[in-house]
């Protein structure tokens, strides 16, 4: 239905949008909360699943209710 009506999935399904620049910056929208924050792993809760960002020297540049910018050396992103 979403596809037939051409509605954006992030609005209808509440899917997270991830924008990754190289392996050093990640911008995530539509997340719900921080589950775990360590130097080498950040686990975020979204509406549909969990997103795990792995790497080293990970830091949160800024965050608010809806979006977050993460910088550091990102090695992999896992959807759980």
């Amino acid at each position: 239905m979403v596809e037939s009506l051409s509605l954006p999935k992030d609005l209808v399904l509440g899917s997270a949008i991830l924008t990754v620049t190289g392996n050093s910056d990640l911008y995530i929208e539509n997340y719900k909360g921080i589950l775990l924050y360590e130097d080498c792993c950040i686990l975020l809760q979204t509406k549909t699943c969990q997103v795990q960002i792995e790497g080293c020297n990970l830091s949160i540049d800024y965050y608010n209710n809806e979006d977050m910018r993460i910088s550091g050396c990102i090695r992999q992103i896992v959807w759980k």
Partner: peptide
């Protein structure tokens, strides 16, 4: 985040 308290530059 929920209380709109602006936080930035978080480092572990």
């Amino acid at each position: 985040g929920n209380r709109s308290i602006h936080v930035w530059g978080v480092e572990n």
